[in-house]
Design a binder for these strands. Structure first.
Length: 447
RNA sequence: UCCACCGUAGCUCAAUUGGCAGAGCAGCCGGCUGUUAACCGGCUGGUUCCUGGUUCGAGUCCAGGCGGUGGAGCCA
Protein backbone atom coordinates (compact mmCIF):
# COMPACT_ATOMS: atom_id res chain seq x y z
CA UNK A 1 0.00 0.00 0.00
CA UNK A 2 1.31 3.40 -1.02
CA UNK A 3 1.36 5.91 1.82
CA UNK A 4 -1.03 8.88 1.63
CA UNK A 5 1.02 12.10 1.84
CA UNK A 6 0.31 15.78 1.28
CA UNK A 7 1.74 17.94 -1.50
CA UNK A 8 3.67 19.89 1.14
CA UNK A 9 5.50 16.67 2.10
CA UNK A 10 6.44 15.57 -1.44
CA UNK A 11 10.05 16.75 -1.26
CA UNK A 12 10.66 14.22 1.55
CA UNK A 13 9.50 11.25 -0.54
CA UNK A 14 11.51 11.48 -3.77
CA UNK A 15 11.70 8.07 -5.47
CA UNK A 16 8.94 6.58 -3.28
CA UNK A 17 5.56 5.38 -4.40
CA UNK A 18 2.91 7.48 -2.58
CA UNK A 19 -0.73 8.45 -2.78
CA UNK A 20 -2.08 12.00 -3.17
CA UNK A 21 -5.69 12.99 -2.55
CA UNK A 22 -7.03 16.25 -3.86
CA UNK A 23 -8.80 18.22 -6.54
CA UNK A 24 -7.93 18.82 -10.19
CA UNK A 25 -7.51 22.51 -10.95
CA UNK A 26 -6.03 22.31 -14.44
CA UNK A 27 -5.42 19.67 -17.07
CA UNK A 28 -3.30 19.71 -20.20
CA UNK A 29 -4.23 16.99 -22.67
CA UNK A 30 -1.27 15.90 -24.83
CA UNK A 31 -2.82 12.67 -26.10
CA UNK A 32 -0.97 9.77 -24.55
CA UNK A 33 0.45 12.16 -21.96
CA UNK A 34 -1.74 14.06 -19.50
CA UNK A 35 -0.56 16.83 -17.20
CA UNK A 36 -2.91 17.11 -14.22
CA UNK A 37 -2.54 19.97 -11.74
CA UNK A 38 -3.64 18.85 -8.34
CA UNK A 39 -4.24 20.82 -5.16
CA UNK A 40 -4.87 19.31 -1.75
CA UNK A 41 -5.03 22.32 0.58
CA UNK A 42 -1.35 22.15 1.54
CA UNK A 43 -0.04 23.05 -1.91
CA UNK A 44 -0.28 22.70 -5.66
CA UNK A 45 1.52 20.02 -7.67
CA UNK A 46 1.66 18.47 -11.12
CA UNK A 47 0.77 14.84 -11.77
CA UNK A 48 2.26 13.41 -14.97
CA UNK A 49 0.18 10.62 -16.48
CA UNK A 50 1.85 8.56 -19.23
CA UNK A 51 -0.54 6.12 -20.91
CA UNK A 52 1.96 3.24 -20.80
CA UNK A 53 2.28 3.43 -16.99
CA UNK A 54 -1.40 2.84 -16.09
CA UNK A 55 -4.25 0.42 -16.68
CA UNK A 56 -6.37 1.56 -19.64
CA UNK A 57 -9.29 2.32 -17.34
CA UNK A 58 -7.18 4.53 -15.05
CA UNK A 59 -5.61 6.37 -17.98
CA UNK A 60 -9.05 6.98 -19.44
CA UNK A 61 -10.16 8.47 -16.11
CA UNK A 62 -7.19 10.87 -16.15
CA UNK A 63 -7.92 11.77 -19.76
CA UNK A 64 -11.52 12.75 -19.10
CA UNK A 65 -11.28 14.18 -15.60
CA UNK A 66 -12.91 17.61 -15.27
CA UNK A 67 -11.73 20.69 -13.40
CA UNK A 68 -12.34 20.41 -9.61
CA UNK A 69 -13.06 16.67 -9.69
CA UNK A 70 -11.92 14.95 -6.51
CA UNK A 71 -9.29 12.28 -7.17
CA UNK A 72 -6.91 9.79 -5.58
CA UNK A 73 -3.63 9.35 -7.43
CA UNK A 74 -0.88 6.82 -6.81
CA UNK A 75 2.59 7.30 -8.26
CA UNK A 76 6.29 7.93 -7.78
CA UNK A 77 7.56 11.31 -6.55
CA UNK A 78 10.13 12.82 -8.88
CA UNK A 79 12.20 15.97 -8.61
CA UNK A 80 12.00 17.99 -11.82
CA UNK A 81 12.80 21.66 -12.39
CA UNK A 82 10.03 21.90 -14.97
CA UNK A 83 7.33 20.92 -12.47
CA UNK A 84 5.04 23.87 -11.75
CA UNK A 85 3.11 24.33 -8.50
CA UNK A 86 3.50 25.64 -4.99
CA UNK A 87 6.16 25.14 -3.82
CA UNK A 88 6.86 23.38 -7.17
CA UNK A 89 9.90 21.44 -8.37
CA UNK A 90 8.37 18.04 -7.52
CA UNK A 91 5.84 16.03 -9.51
CA UNK A 92 4.08 12.71 -9.29
CA UNK A 93 4.68 10.12 -12.03
CA UNK A 94 1.26 8.44 -11.93
CA UNK A 95 0.70 4.67 -11.72
CA UNK A 96 -3.00 4.77 -10.82
CA UNK A 97 -5.70 7.42 -11.16
CA UNK A 98 -9.12 7.17 -9.48
CA UNK A 99 -11.93 9.68 -9.70
CA UNK A 100 -13.88 10.02 -6.43
CA UNK A 101 -16.41 12.44 -7.88
CA UNK A 102 -16.47 13.77 -11.43
CA UNK A 103 -17.19 17.50 -11.08
CA UNK A 104 -19.82 19.24 -13.14
CA UNK A 105 -18.80 22.07 -15.46
CA UNK A 106 -16.92 24.45 -13.16
CA UNK A 107 -17.71 28.17 -13.41
CA UNK A 108 -14.33 29.59 -12.35
CA UNK A 109 -11.49 29.39 -14.85
CA UNK A 110 -7.81 30.16 -14.42
CA UNK A 111 -8.25 33.57 -16.05
CA UNK A 112 -9.69 37.03 -15.37
CA UNK A 113 -13.14 37.34 -13.83
CA UNK A 114 -15.24 40.28 -12.69
CA UNK A 115 -15.60 41.25 -9.03
CA UNK A 116 -19.36 40.65 -8.88
CA UNK A 117 -19.02 37.16 -10.34
CA UNK A 118 -16.18 36.23 -8.01
CA UNK A 119 -17.99 37.46 -4.89
CA UNK A 120 -21.12 35.52 -5.88
CA UNK A 121 -18.88 32.45 -6.17
CA UNK A 122 -16.77 33.12 -3.09
CA UNK A 123 -17.36 29.53 -1.89
CA UNK A 124 -15.51 28.34 -5.01
CA UNK A 125 -13.17 31.32 -5.48
CA UNK A 126 -11.43 30.33 -2.22
CA UNK A 127 -9.97 27.31 -4.02
CA UNK A 128 -7.73 29.37 -6.30
CA UNK A 129 -4.00 29.72 -5.53
CA UNK A 130 -4.19 33.44 -4.85
CA UNK A 131 -7.01 33.12 -2.31
CA UNK A 132 -5.28 30.12 -0.79
CA UNK A 133 -2.14 32.21 -0.26
CA UNK A 134 -4.06 35.13 1.27
CA UNK A 135 -5.95 32.96 3.76
CA UNK A 136 -2.70 31.31 4.84
CA UNK A 137 -1.10 34.71 5.42
CA UNK A 138 -4.18 35.76 7.40
CA UNK A 139 -3.90 32.67 9.60
CA UNK A 140 -0.22 33.46 10.21
CA UNK A 141 -1.05 37.07 11.12
CA UNK A 142 -3.60 35.81 13.63
CA UNK A 143 -1.14 33.32 15.12
CA UNK A 144 1.53 36.01 15.37
CA UNK A 145 -0.92 38.34 17.13
CA UNK A 146 -1.81 35.72 19.73
CA UNK A 147 1.77 34.56 20.22
CA UNK A 148 3.18 38.04 20.77
CA UNK A 149 0.48 39.10 23.20
CA UNK A 150 0.48 35.81 25.11
CA UNK A 151 4.29 35.98 25.39
CA UNK A 152 4.20 39.57 26.70
CA UNK A 153 1.94 39.11 29.69
CA UNK A 154 -1.42 39.81 28.08
CA UNK A 155 -4.42 37.72 29.09
CA UNK A 156 -7.01 37.01 26.44
CA UNK A 157 -10.42 37.90 27.86
CA UNK A 158 -13.23 37.76 25.33
CA UNK A 159 -15.84 40.49 25.32
CA UNK A 160 -19.51 40.21 24.35
CA UNK A 161 -20.82 40.58 20.83
CA UNK A 162 -24.40 41.32 21.93
CA UNK A 163 -24.34 44.65 23.71
CA UNK A 164 -27.00 46.87 25.25
CA UNK A 165 -25.77 50.24 23.97
CA UNK A 166 -23.45 52.02 21.63
CA UNK A 167 -19.77 52.39 22.39
CA UNK A 168 -19.23 55.08 19.79
CA UNK A 169 -21.67 56.44 17.22
CA UNK A 170 -25.23 55.10 17.20
CA UNK A 171 -25.80 55.42 13.45
CA UNK A 172 -23.42 52.61 12.60
CA UNK A 173 -24.90 49.92 14.83
CA UNK A 174 -26.51 46.70 13.69
CA UNK A 175 -29.64 46.26 15.77
CA UNK A 176 -30.94 42.84 16.68
CA UNK A 177 -33.69 41.43 18.86
CA UNK A 178 -32.69 40.28 22.34
CA UNK A 179 -35.91 38.67 23.60
CA UNK A 180 -38.05 41.68 22.70
CA UNK A 181 -35.43 44.22 23.74
CA UNK A 182 -33.10 45.93 21.30
CA UNK A 183 -29.49 44.76 21.36
CA UNK A 184 -26.59 45.78 19.16
CA UNK A 185 -23.73 43.87 17.60
CA UNK A 186 -20.46 45.02 19.13
CA UNK A 187 -18.41 47.69 17.37
CA UNK A 188 -15.55 47.24 19.81
CA UNK A 189 -14.72 45.35 22.98
CA UNK A 190 -12.79 48.25 24.39
CA UNK A 191 -15.12 49.39 27.16
CA UNK A 192 -15.27 45.84 28.51
CA UNK A 193 -11.49 45.58 28.12
CA UNK A 194 -11.18 48.57 30.42
CA UNK A 195 -13.14 46.69 33.07
CA UNK A 196 -10.91 43.67 32.56
CA UNK A 197 -7.58 45.46 33.07
CA UNK A 198 -8.54 46.28 36.65
CA UNK A 199 -8.84 42.53 37.21
CA UNK A 200 -5.99 41.25 35.03
CA UNK A 201 -3.58 44.13 34.29
CA UNK A 202 -2.89 43.57 30.60
CA UNK A 203 -5.64 42.05 28.46
CA UNK A 204 -6.78 41.70 24.89
CA UNK A 205 -9.95 40.71 23.15
CA UNK A 206 -10.00 39.32 19.63
CA UNK A 207 -13.06 38.75 17.54
CA UNK A 208 -15.43 40.02 14.91
CA UNK A 209 -16.82 43.53 15.16
CA UNK A 210 -19.68 45.08 13.26
CA UNK A 211 -20.13 48.52 11.72
CA UNK A 212 -23.26 49.34 9.76
CA UNK A 213 -21.42 52.09 7.88
CA UNK A 214 -22.60 52.88 4.37
CA UNK A 215 -19.01 52.56 3.29
CA UNK A 216 -18.13 51.26 -0.14
CA UNK A 217 -14.39 51.54 -0.25
CA UNK A 218 -11.45 49.18 -0.53
CA UNK A 219 -10.80 49.55 3.20
CA UNK A 220 -14.24 48.76 4.64
CA UNK A 221 -16.21 45.70 5.65
CA UNK A 222 -19.46 45.49 7.60
CA UNK A 223 -17.98 42.66 9.68
CA UNK A 224 -14.27 42.64 10.41
CA UNK A 225 -11.84 41.22 12.94
CA UNK A 226 -10.05 43.39 15.42
CA UNK A 227 -7.56 42.65 18.16
CA UNK A 228 -7.79 45.12 21.03
CA UNK A 229 -5.10 45.13 23.71
CA UNK A 230 -5.72 47.28 26.80
CA UNK A 231 -3.08 48.01 29.41
CA UNK A 232 -3.20 49.34 32.98
CA UNK A 233 -0.45 51.74 34.17
CA UNK A 234 0.24 52.73 30.57
CA UNK A 235 0.61 56.20 29.05
CA UNK A 236 0.33 57.12 25.38
CA UNK A 237 4.13 57.10 25.06
CA UNK A 238 4.33 53.59 26.54
CA UNK A 239 1.55 52.47 24.22
CA UNK A 240 3.34 53.50 21.04
CA UNK A 241 6.38 51.44 22.00
CA UNK A 242 4.16 48.40 22.46
CA UNK A 243 2.43 48.98 19.13
CA UNK A 244 5.64 49.25 17.11
CA UNK A 245 7.05 46.07 18.67
CA UNK A 246 3.78 44.26 18.04
CA UNK A 247 3.33 45.30 14.40
CA UNK A 248 6.97 44.62 13.56
CA UNK A 249 6.74 41.14 15.02
CA UNK A 250 3.65 40.33 12.95
CA UNK A 251 5.25 41.50 9.70
CA UNK A 252 8.58 39.72 10.28
CA UNK A 253 6.80 36.51 11.28
CA UNK A 254 4.84 36.44 8.01
CA UNK A 255 8.00 37.17 5.98
CA UNK A 256 9.72 34.28 7.72
CA UNK A 257 6.97 31.66 7.59
CA UNK A 258 4.85 32.55 4.57
CA UNK A 259 7.45 33.37 1.93
CA UNK A 260 5.90 30.95 -0.59
CA UNK A 261 2.50 32.56 -0.20
CA UNK A 262 3.90 36.08 -0.64
CA UNK A 263 5.60 34.85 -3.81
CA UNK A 264 2.26 33.56 -5.14
CA UNK A 265 0.87 37.05 -4.49
CA UNK A 266 3.89 38.61 -6.26
CA UNK A 267 4.41 40.82 -3.23
CA UNK A 268 7.54 42.98 -3.32
CA UNK A 269 8.73 42.36 0.24
CA UNK A 270 11.52 44.95 0.32
CA UNK A 271 9.36 47.56 2.07
CA UNK A 272 8.07 44.99 4.58
CA UNK A 273 11.63 44.04 5.52
CA UNK A 274 12.16 47.60 6.81
CA UNK A 275 9.31 47.30 9.32
CA UNK A 276 11.07 47.28 12.67
CA UNK A 277 11.09 49.65 15.66
CA UNK A 278 11.19 52.55 16.07
CA UNK A 279 8.45 53.97 13.84
CA UNK A 280 8.42 57.70 13.06
CA UNK A 281 6.07 59.84 15.15
CA UNK A 282 4.51 63.10 14.05
CA UNK A 283 1.90 65.20 15.78
CA UNK A 284 -1.42 66.08 14.20
CA UNK A 285 -0.22 69.72 14.14
CA UNK A 286 2.87 68.75 12.15
CA UNK A 287 0.80 66.58 9.83
CA UNK A 288 -1.57 69.45 9.06
CA UNK A 289 1.41 71.68 8.30
CA UNK A 290 2.96 69.04 6.01
CA UNK A 291 -0.33 68.58 4.17
CA UNK A 292 -0.97 72.28 3.69
CA UNK A 293 2.60 72.95 2.57
CA UNK A 294 2.29 70.15 0.00
CA UNK A 295 -1.20 71.24 -1.07
CA UNK A 296 0.10 74.78 -1.68
CA UNK A 297 2.79 73.31 -3.94
CA UNK A 298 0.14 71.44 -5.94
CA UNK A 299 1.29 67.96 -4.91
CA UNK A 300 -0.81 65.15 -6.38
CA UNK A 301 -1.58 61.82 -4.73
CA UNK A 302 -2.26 58.30 -6.00
CA UNK A 303 -4.28 56.32 -6.94
CA UNK A 304 -6.07 58.85 -9.16
CA UNK A 305 -3.28 61.44 -9.17
CA UNK A 306 -5.61 64.10 -7.80
CA UNK A 307 -4.35 67.30 -6.18
CA UNK A 308 -3.94 66.99 -2.43
CA UNK A 309 -6.69 69.12 -0.86
CA UNK A 310 -5.67 71.48 1.98
CA UNK A 311 -6.98 70.78 5.47
CA UNK A 312 -8.17 72.99 8.30
CA UNK A 313 -6.94 72.40 11.81
CA UNK A 314 -9.63 70.36 13.57
CA UNK A 315 -10.72 68.29 10.58
CA UNK A 316 -10.09 64.59 10.45
CA UNK A 317 -7.88 63.32 7.63
CA UNK A 318 -9.42 62.19 4.37
CA UNK A 319 -8.03 59.29 2.37
CA UNK A 320 -5.67 61.48 0.27
CA UNK A 321 -4.25 63.06 3.44
CA UNK A 322 -3.49 59.69 4.97
CA UNK A 323 -1.95 58.53 1.72
CA UNK A 324 0.25 61.61 1.50
CA UNK A 325 1.48 61.42 5.10
CA UNK A 326 2.22 57.71 4.86
CA UNK A 327 4.11 58.22 1.59
CA UNK A 328 6.60 60.54 3.34
CA UNK A 329 7.94 57.63 5.42
CA UNK A 330 9.38 54.22 4.65
CA UNK A 331 7.85 52.60 7.74
CA UNK A 332 4.42 52.81 9.32
CA UNK A 333 4.02 56.24 10.92
CA UNK A 334 2.27 57.34 14.10
CA UNK A 335 0.15 60.49 14.00
CA UNK A 336 -0.52 61.57 17.58
CA UNK A 337 -2.48 64.22 19.48
CA UNK A 338 -5.56 64.55 17.31
CA UNK A 339 -8.13 67.26 18.05
CA UNK A 340 -10.27 66.15 21.00
CA UNK A 341 -13.41 67.17 19.12
CA UNK A 342 -12.73 64.80 16.23
CA UNK A 343 -12.20 61.72 18.40
CA UNK A 344 -14.19 59.41 20.67
CA UNK A 345 -15.39 60.63 24.08
CA UNK A 346 -13.15 58.37 26.18
CA UNK A 347 -9.79 59.75 25.01
CA UNK A 348 -7.72 61.63 27.58
CA UNK A 349 -7.26 65.31 26.74
CA UNK A 350 -3.68 66.62 27.00
CA UNK A 351 -3.58 68.38 30.41
CA UNK A 352 -1.84 71.58 29.23
CA UNK A 353 -3.73 71.66 25.94
CA UNK A 354 -7.22 70.16 26.20
CA UNK A 355 -8.09 70.84 22.54
CA UNK A 356 -5.93 67.84 21.62
CA UNK A 357 -6.11 64.36 23.10
CA UNK A 358 -3.59 61.66 23.97
CA UNK A 359 -4.41 59.55 20.92
CA UNK A 360 -2.41 58.08 18.05
CA UNK A 361 -3.26 56.35 14.79
CA UNK A 362 -0.78 54.14 12.95
CA UNK A 363 -0.76 54.61 9.19
CA UNK A 364 0.56 51.76 7.06
CA UNK A 365 2.86 52.56 4.13
CA UNK A 366 1.90 52.32 0.44
CA UNK A 367 -1.56 53.81 0.86
CA UNK A 368 -3.05 51.09 3.07
CA UNK A 369 -4.25 53.66 5.57
CA UNK A 370 -5.03 53.45 9.24
CA UNK A 371 -4.37 49.99 10.67
CA UNK A 372 -4.35 51.01 14.36
CA UNK A 373 -6.32 53.53 16.36
CA UNK A 374 -5.35 53.94 20.00
CA UNK A 375 -5.27 56.31 22.92
CA UNK A 376 -4.80 56.89 26.58
CA UNK A 377 -8.23 56.74 28.24
CA UNK A 378 -9.77 59.29 30.60
CA UNK A 379 -8.98 58.08 34.13
CA UNK A 380 -10.79 60.74 36.17
CA UNK A 381 -14.52 60.01 36.79
CA UNK A 382 -15.59 63.66 36.69
CA UNK A 383 -13.73 64.38 33.46
CA UNK A 384 -15.36 61.28 31.96
CA UNK A 385 -18.87 62.45 32.90
CA UNK A 386 -18.09 65.83 31.36
CA UNK A 387 -16.89 64.20 28.16
CA UNK A 388 -20.03 62.05 27.89
CA UNK A 389 -22.22 65.13 28.30
CA UNK A 390 -20.20 67.07 25.74
CA UNK A 391 -20.85 64.24 23.23
CA UNK A 392 -24.59 64.22 24.08
CA UNK A 393 -24.41 60.65 25.35
CA UNK A 394 -26.75 59.37 28.09
CA UNK A 395 -25.06 58.65 31.44
CA UNK A 396 -27.23 55.70 32.49
CA UNK A 397 -25.81 53.04 30.10
CA UNK A 398 -22.27 54.10 31.02
CA UNK A 399 -22.78 53.82 34.77
CA UNK A 400 -20.61 50.73 35.05
CA UNK A 401 -17.96 52.33 32.83
CA UNK A 402 -17.79 55.39 35.06
CA UNK A 403 -17.58 53.09 38.10
CA UNK A 404 -14.22 51.82 36.84
CA UNK A 405 -12.79 55.29 37.61
CA UNK A 406 -14.28 55.32 41.12
CA UNK A 407 -12.55 52.22 42.46
CA UNK A 408 -8.78 52.49 42.03
CA UNK A 409 -8.47 54.36 38.74
CA UNK A 410 -5.06 54.33 37.05
CA UNK A 411 -3.65 55.77 33.82
CA UNK A 412 -4.38 53.24 31.10
CA UNK A 413 -4.26 52.94 27.34
CA UNK A 414 -5.21 50.62 24.56
CA UNK A 415 -5.52 50.22 20.83
CA UNK A 416 -7.33 48.26 18.14
CA UNK A 417 -5.62 46.67 15.15
CA UNK A 418 -7.74 45.77 12.13
CA UNK A 419 -6.81 42.31 10.90
CA UNK A 420 -8.14 42.73 7.36
CA UNK A 421 -6.31 45.99 6.69
CA UNK A 422 -3.12 44.52 8.11
CA UNK A 423 -3.43 41.44 5.89
CA UNK A 424 -4.23 43.62 2.85
CA UNK A 425 -1.09 45.65 3.50
CA UNK A 426 1.20 42.64 4.05
CA UNK A 427 -0.21 40.85 0.99
CA UNK A 428 -0.25 44.00 -1.15
CA UNK A 429 -3.95 43.69 -2.03
CA UNK A 430 -6.17 46.37 -3.52
CA UNK A 431 -9.20 45.53 -1.42
CA UNK A 432 -9.84 44.08 2.05
CA UNK A 433 -12.64 41.88 0.69
CA UNK A 434 -10.05 39.26 -0.29
CA UNK A 435 -8.60 39.03 3.22
CA UNK A 436 -11.53 37.23 4.84
CA UNK A 437 -13.11 33.97 3.70
CA UNK A 438 -16.67 35.27 3.43
CA UNK A 439 -16.55 39.07 3.30
CA UNK A 440 -19.52 41.13 4.36
CA UNK A 441 -19.40 44.14 2.09
CA UNK A 442 -22.19 46.67 1.75
CA UNK A 443 -25.18 45.21 -0.07
CA UNK A 444 -23.96 41.61 -0.02
CA UNK A 445 -24.95 38.76 2.29
CA UNK A 446 -24.36 35.75 0.02
CA UNK A 447 -22.78 33.27 0.18
C1' U B 1 -26.78 59.42 1.49
C1' C B 2 -24.02 61.83 -2.62
C1' C B 3 -20.83 61.71 -7.27
C1' A B 4 -18.87 58.93 -11.58
C1' C B 5 -18.94 54.63 -14.55
C1' C B 6 -20.91 49.82 -16.03
C1' G B 7 -24.89 45.78 -17.23
C1' U B 8 -24.54 41.37 -24.48
C1' A B 9 -23.37 33.20 -24.34
C1' G B 10 -21.30 29.68 -18.08
C1' C B 11 -16.78 33.49 -18.02
C1' U B 12 -13.91 37.84 -20.36
C1' C B 13 -15.39 41.01 -24.00
C1' A B 14 -16.73 42.86 -29.48
C1' A B 15 -20.88 44.60 -32.49
C1' U B 16 -19.11 51.21 -37.35
C1' U B 17 -24.37 56.22 -38.35
C1' G B 18 -30.17 52.88 -35.35
C1' G B 19 -29.83 47.89 -40.26
C1' C B 20 -28.73 39.57 -40.31
C1' A B 21 -25.95 39.15 -32.24
C1' G B 22 -19.98 37.74 -32.87
C1' A B 23 -14.92 36.12 -30.90
C1' G B 24 -11.69 33.90 -27.25
C1' C B 25 -12.00 30.79 -23.05
C1' A B 26 -15.02 26.87 -20.64
C1' G B 27 -18.02 22.30 -22.23
C1' C B 28 -18.45 18.00 -25.93
C1' C B 29 -15.85 15.06 -30.21
C1' G B 30 -11.06 14.13 -32.78
C1' G B 31 -5.29 14.74 -33.04
C1' C B 32 -0.54 15.22 -30.47
C1' U B 33 5.05 11.98 -24.96
C1' G B 34 7.04 17.89 -21.37
C1' U B 35 2.55 21.15 -21.03
C1' U B 36 3.11 25.82 -17.63
C1' A B 37 -4.03 29.92 -18.41
C1' A B 38 -0.54 24.36 -24.22
C1' C B 39 -1.64 24.00 -29.39
C1' C B 40 -4.53 22.35 -34.07
C1' G B 41 -9.54 20.85 -36.41
C1' G B 42 -14.88 20.37 -35.57
C1' C B 43 -19.55 20.96 -32.62
C1' U B 44 -22.75 23.05 -28.93
C1' G B 45 -24.11 27.49 -26.54
C1' G B 46 -28.42 34.13 -26.45
C1' U B 47 -34.97 36.69 -22.02
C1' U B 48 -28.55 41.76 -25.17
C1' C B 49 -30.72 43.39 -16.61
C1' C B 50 -36.28 44.82 -16.25
C1' U B 51 -40.61 47.99 -17.68
C1' G B 52 -42.32 51.50 -20.93
C1' G B 53 -41.44 54.97 -25.10
C1' U B 54 -39.47 56.92 -30.10
C1' U B 55 -38.80 54.34 -34.97
C1' C B 56 -40.25 50.73 -40.98
C1' G B 57 -36.43 48.72 -37.71
C1' A B 58 -33.40 49.33 -30.88
C1' G B 59 -27.87 45.63 -27.93
C1' U B 60 -27.38 50.82 -29.70
C1' C B 61 -31.64 56.57 -28.72
C1' C B 62 -35.16 58.48 -24.45
C1' A B 63 -37.63 57.86 -19.37
C1' G B 64 -38.10 55.15 -14.94
C1' G B 65 -36.51 51.04 -12.11
C1' C B 66 -33.14 47.03 -10.50
C1' G B 67 -28.19 45.21 -9.92
C1' G B 68 -22.90 46.01 -9.80
C1' U B 69 -18.07 48.68 -9.61
C1' G B 70 -15.03 52.79 -8.07
C1' G B 71 -14.88 56.96 -4.91
C1' A B 72 -16.65 60.64 -0.98
C1' G B 73 -18.23 61.08 4.05
C1' C B 74 -17.30 57.74 8.45
C1' C B 75 -13.90 54.39 10.29
C1' A B 76 -10.01 49.62 11.75
Amino acid sequence: MAKWITIEQMSHHVGEEVELRGWVYLRTDKGRLQFIRLRDGTGFAQVVVFKKNLDPEAFNAARHVTQESSVIVRGIVRQDERAPGIPGGYELDARDFQIVQLAEEYPIQPKEHGVDFLLDHRHLWLRTPRQWAIMRVRAEVIRAISDWLDDHGFLRVDTPILTPSAAEGTTTLFETNYHDRPAYLAQTGQLYNEANIFAFGKVYCFGPTFRAEKSKTRRHLQEFWMVEPEIAWCTLEDLLEIEEQFVSYIVQRVLERRANELRVLERDTSSLEKVEPPFPRISYDEAVEMINRAAAQGVRVPPKDEPLPPIEWGDDFGAPHETYIAAQFEKPVFVHHFPTEAKAFYMEPEPDRPEVCRSADLLAPEGYGEIIGGSERISDPEKLVEALKRHNLPLEPYKWYIDLRRYGSVPHSGFGLGVERTVAWICGLHHVRETIAFPRVLGRLYP
